[in-house]
Design a protein around this nucleic acid. Structure first.
Length: 584
DNA sequence: CATTTTGACGCT
DNA sequence: AGCGTCAA
């Protein structure tokens, strides 16, 4: 299977809990929970072993683990906000560096001061900057390791979230001449069992690299991570779940192993299918399979959970697509297409939020906005502008859009956006604050219990984006990155692995079959999947897509003020259904 | 059951 | 531009 990709997903184990364990030097056998107000947002594995879960309260934890370590996330308080100068990232960097390099005595002191002591949510906002810092450190270290071992350009690294990233190792394994890679170290799980571990030397090489990489992060920075290795991002993510904690799970590139994965994975476990959309897929599949209920209690949910990826793949596309255009398919040709790893991928938005609980705290009418929320708004605006300035320094970009969010109920979020003040504009905080207050005062929903503000739509100010930390960071990264914006983001994405909606990014390069929703090659006369003939309407829509894409690219080129070529256009590849893995 | 504070992205 | 969905 020489043309298949090899993608690894790396996932830091219970990340915030690890950060605190490292920062405060907490013995590894102790159960640790990181709290945000009264509920835990991260728990380590000893705690999980005792039955402790996310959102559990401290009293309940103590019942099952009396030695529980309870650390609260960092907060910004209303009273002591922001002594640091806006835009001085170095000040904050040294602040966080200091947090993680305490002496033994300082650690012990901080531990006793913090363990079990929670701040008041009525005068503070939770802030995860402490963990963003570690995330940056780890990602930077990963790049150093990969540059050393694989070589610059020989891999692609995409940040997926604060504690997750993808590494595309296809190029590395294709180029390498290494004949007998050293054996794997650490915990390794082979999905489908050892018997499915073929003599795939390239996959073994990639697995070996991931093992070493995990080891490197553990020895240099003291953090453990789990990893999944597979032919694409979705399967890598799935595999990583099997490797937890502190292990590597490989989905070998054999159809036998793929069969096992498809049969043993509930479709609800697949990224993107945990919510309403996944439920709709399940509903349709259940109907197709002749299960109509009536269902008692949790029966329905249980049936949904039992639906494997294979079962979904066995359904015709139109059964799944009745409402949401869902299609179940494996990657394109050779089972390898799709979801290209986006190199770098710096964050696309910066947001800050604060929720208020109880009637006393919430904002009931226009008059309450300034009196009750004024101080919060000021704090959040300062925090946002400061982070945007830091980001600007690091990534040499600025944002176009300012968006204010508020809601009276978790399900009814309202938002209003406007132009973000320019980088050199005077009084950025003041103008943002003004818009924030005005937007809330004009609210049609009361009481307001949650407010937030975000900066989005970043555009480059010049060449050379740094991605994780700026150049002289603690991990010693000095190389500028060669990441280029826009083009990469525009061209790369087509998500087609198991069950996806045809992505918008394909507009202009395919025609979309009405019968089965498949995105066909631009010049195909009949649908490659269901053989339906291309109609006049299809032609018209295709022409419209072409025009739209053309317009979009023109607009993009002007907006960022640099010469943007059309670039490489991704070709739609022939889809291979899950069924193909099972013959017939 | 939902909790909070993030973040990405799709639809109209 | 505004709202909805999904995830951790």
């Amino acid at each position: 299977m020489p043309s298949s990709r090899l993608i690894a997903l790396l996932d830091l184990d219970c990340f915030y809990a690890q950060c605190e364990s490292v920062r405060l030097d907490i013995p590894s056998h102790l159960p640790v929970a990181v709290f945000q107000w009264s509920g835990a947002i991260a728990v380590n594995y000893p705690a999980r072993a005792a039955g402790i879960k996310r959102f559990m309260k401290l009293e309940d934890m103590k019942k099952v683990a009396s030695d529980i370590v309870a650390i609260h996330v960092e907060v910004e308080t209303l009273s002591s906000a922001f002594i640091e100068e806006a835009g001085d990232e170095d000040v904050r960097k040294s602040k966080y560096k200091k947090q993680y390099s305490l002496t033994c005595e300082e650690k012990a002191l901080a531990f006793s001061r913090e363990n079990g002591h929670f701040p008041s949510r009525t005068s503070a906002q939770a802030n995860i900057e402490r963990y963003r810092y570690v995330s940056g450190l780890i990602f930077s270290r990963l790049r150093i390791f990969l540059d050393e071992v694989v070589g610059q350009g020989g891999y692609k690294l995409e940040k997926a979230s604060i504690d997750e990233l993808y590494v595309d190792l296809t190029e590395y394994v294709n180029k390498s001449r290494e004949s007998t890679p050293p054996p794997l170290t650490g915990k390794v799980v082979i999905i489908g069992g050892d018997k499915n571990w073929t003599d795939d030397a390239q996959c073994l090489m990639a697995a070996n690299l991931v093992s070493r990489l995990r080891e490197d992060i553990k020895t240099t920075l003291g953090y453990t991570l789990s990893a999944g290795l597979a032919i694409n991002k979705t399967m890598a993510k799935l595999a990583a779940g099997r490797g937890k904690p502190d292990g590597l799970a490989v989905l070998p590139r054999s159809s036998e192993a793929m069969k096992v994965a498809l049969e043993t994975t509930s479709v609800l476990e697949v990224r993107g299918y945990g919510g309403k959309g996944g439920k709709i897929v399940c509903e349709n599949v259940l109907k197709f399979r002749g299960y109509n209920g009536p269902w008692e209690g949790d029966e329905y949910e249980e049936e949904c959970k039992k639906l494997s990826m294979k079962m979904c793949g066995d359904c015709p596309a139109d059964v799944l697509g009745s409402k949401h255009d869902w299609r179940l398919m494996n990657n394109g040709e050779e089972g390898e297409e799709v979801q290209h790893t986006k190199p770098g991928a710096p964050t696309k938005s910066i947001t800050t939020f604060k929720s208020f609980v109880g009637d006393k705290e919430s904002c009931h009418r226009k008059d309450d906005v300034k009196s009750k929320l004024g101080a919060w708004i000021e704090m959040m605006v300062k925090s946002l502008v400061r982070r945007v300035l830091d980001d600007s320094k690091r990534n040499n970009r600025w944002c176009k859009t300012l968006c204010v969010y508020f809601c009276n109920d978790v399900k009814a979020v309202k938002s209003k956006s406007t132009k973000f003040p320019g980088k050199s504009a005077q009084g950025k905080e003041e103008s943002v604050t003004k818009f924030f207050i005005k937007t809330l005062e004009e609210s049609t929903v009361w009481p307001i219990i949650r407010v937030g503000v975000s900066a989005d739509n970043f555009f480059p100010l010049g060449a050379g984006l740094g991605i994780f930390l700026s150049k002289e960071n603690e991990a010693g990264v000095t190389k500028p990155t060669d990441f280029k914006t826009t083009k990469v983001a525009k061209v790369v994405e087509k998500s087609t692995l198991f069950a996806t909606v045809p992505p918008k990014s394909l507009a202009g390069i395919c025609w979309n079959c009405k019968a089965c929703t498949y995105e066909n090659e631009a010049d195909a006369k009949v649908c490659e999947i269901c053989k339906t003939s291309r109609s006049v309407e299809d032609d018209e829509e295709y022409a419209k897509r072409l025009q739209k894409q053309f317009n979009d690219e023109e607009a993009e080129g002007v907006a960022i003020g640099v010469g943007v070529g059309v670039g490489e256009k991704r070709k739609a590849k022939k889809a291979k259904t899950v069924k193909d893995f099972f013959g017939s």
